[in-house]
């Protein structure tokens, strides 16, 4: 799913941060990119893990208690 070598963290942070309303100066962008690279490094075993189509996401939304 992801080869870390293909992931340009600096470019990604520069592009995505404004999209979620984060205005980060260049120096901060570089630090966030470094943090993101660590996330990717540790996350790769999950991102490269193939899972069967029928495996559903783990969280279960609870619609609340039924009150007849």
């Amino acid at each position: 799913m992801l080869d870390p070598k293909d992931f340009n963290a600096a470019a990604y942070v520069a592009a995505v941060a404004p999209a979620v309303g984060l205005r980060l100066p260049a120096e901060r962008q570089a630090r966030v990119a470094a943090a993101l690279e660590l996330v990717v490094k540790i996350g790769v075993p999950a991102l490269s893990c193939e899972v069967a189509e029928e495996i559903e996401p783990a969280p279960v939304f609870n619609p609340g208690v039924s009150r007849p």
Partner: peptide
Amino acid sequence: QDRLLAGALLPAAWVLHAQRVRAAGRD
């Protein structure tokens, strides 16, 4: 600070995939 900022930027597809990996790990 930087870890939180980086986390707020993660692609949704990665996180959704992680939730499915977690379910596979449980099984």
